[in-house]
Simulated scan of single mutants.
Amino acid sequence: MSAMAAPREHDGADEHLMELPSMRNPDPPPPPLPAAPPRRGLNFHPAVYVGFWITLSSATILFNKWILSTCEFAFPIFLTTWHLVFATAATQLLARTTDLLDGRHRVKMTGRIYLRAIMPIGLFFSLSLICSNKAYIYLSVAFIQMLKATTPVAVLVASWALSLSTPSLRTLGNVALIVVGVIIASWGEIALDATGVIYQVLGICFEATRLVMVQRLLSANEYKMDPLVSLYYFAPVCALINGAFFLVLEAGQISWVNDVMGKVGLPMLTLNACVAFALNVSVVFLIGRTSSLVLTLCGVLKDILLVVLSILIWQTEVTLLQFIGYSIALAGLVWYKLGPEKVLEHLVLLKQAAMEGRALGVVAVGVVTVLLVGVVWYAFSGPEGGGV
């Protein structure tokens, strides 16, 4: 949604050291270096951890959309502030009662570093959360996922702008497919809302800047953190920043009785914060237990699943042009994340597995095929008769 010792082209490997409570990064976090040691008593099959991550990541996004759009609770800054306050309290509790945050003892955090590095990153963290959640008021989950496919492109441009890597035409060519796919998908969007698009684009830009700043911070070994430790340090400052934005922009409009308790309710808000925080915990157990290929493909599967669920839950209309554009963008995302050599290598392995009749290969291809056919069938023959 993971570090380097010298400037290099961004390859997406550092993007998800910090899993945001209310954002849905386009793919799961690649395993950091060094890999987290296995935890005693929790050595399940990697598929279990991947399944939990996909479930919690999708649930967080859909839950936020339901609160902000379906419940008409138009206060995204309040919601993100609540997530961060909850995350602050939860990480402090876990630090004192479990070993999940023992990694913080290896981080040489000082007051100077906190002020000069953590707080600026926290500002972009907060802006990213606010804009991303604002977009859910105006746009469908399906279209937002399509726009988010451009996040690696924004990160690449931000790394060039901040001189973290050297501009390369080859790298630009590798991400061109993502841009082309998203443009096609956007052209086919039926319920296009300019305000929502602006908020989502700003959210992607803020998030890209944050990720590059984190990458720069983590270039030193003493500042490497897993997702939960990073949340331990960033949640308090982000809660304060978001709280300030809330006081200025939403506090005068929100009603505790009519909006907070009437439209959503404290139990539902607490459950929402728990799901968002559980996503961060699931990332800690996921990292280091599977390959970058599996994580990248699971991220793509999660994005497709969200599009399908958006169609099923909110009867979102997905046009044929969007389907084609998003497919192109996802193919470009896999190509960019893994690199041409890795993609071709795994295609050869998949072909060999299919020819040898291996059950796993047949099942994987079958599941993907059924999923894609289901998307097309429902989008074009569902109850709303999604058009082209």
Rank of each mutant, 00 (worst) to 15 (best):
A354C: 13
A158N: 03
P167K: 06
E9S: 12
M119P: 02
L338S: 02
C205K: 05
L333G: 02
L62I: 10
Y114I: 01
L305C: 09
I183N: 04
N258A: 15
I313W: 12
K337A: 13
L266C: 11
I77S: 04
V153M: 09
L350S: 12
L211H: 12
L286N: 06
S255T: 09
L156M: 13
L279K: 11
T195M: 11
I61M: 14
L100Y: 08
G366W: 05
S168D: 15
Q145D: 12
L271M: 13
I183V: 14
L164G: 03
T88P: 14
P120N: 06
T151E: 11
N242F: 02
W335V: 05
M119V: 14
A154V: 00
S381E: 08
P31L: 06
V343L: 09
I198P: 00
P383M: 14
H105S: 11
L123K: 08
A364R: 06
S163L: 09
T98N: 12
V388N: 06
S58F: 10
A13N: 10
D259E: 14
I137D: 08
D27H: 14
C205S: 13
R116W: 09
P152H: 02
L33F: 09
L286I: 03
V283Y: 04
W82L: 11
A364P: 08
T166G: 07
V281P: 01
S57M: 10
G243I: 06
M146W: 02
D193W: 00
A35K: 11
Q322S: 03
P29T: 15
N25I: 05
L249P: 02
T91G: 08
A36C: 05
L211V: 10
Q215Y: 01
V179S: 04
S381F: 14
G339A: 03
V50C: 08
T171I: 07
F246A: 03
M213H: 13
S2V: 10
S128Q: 08
S132T: 03
R40W: 04
L295G: 03
I204A: 07
M225F: 00
V257A: 14
P383D: 13
T166C: 10
H346S: 12
K65D: 10
H45R: 08
M225V: 07
L169W: 09
A278G: 15
W314I: 08
E207V: 02
E207L: 14
L330I: 02
G325D: 01
M1H: 11
C238Q: 06
V343F: 03
A353S: 11
R106S: 13
V370N: 05
V180R: 12
G339Y: 07
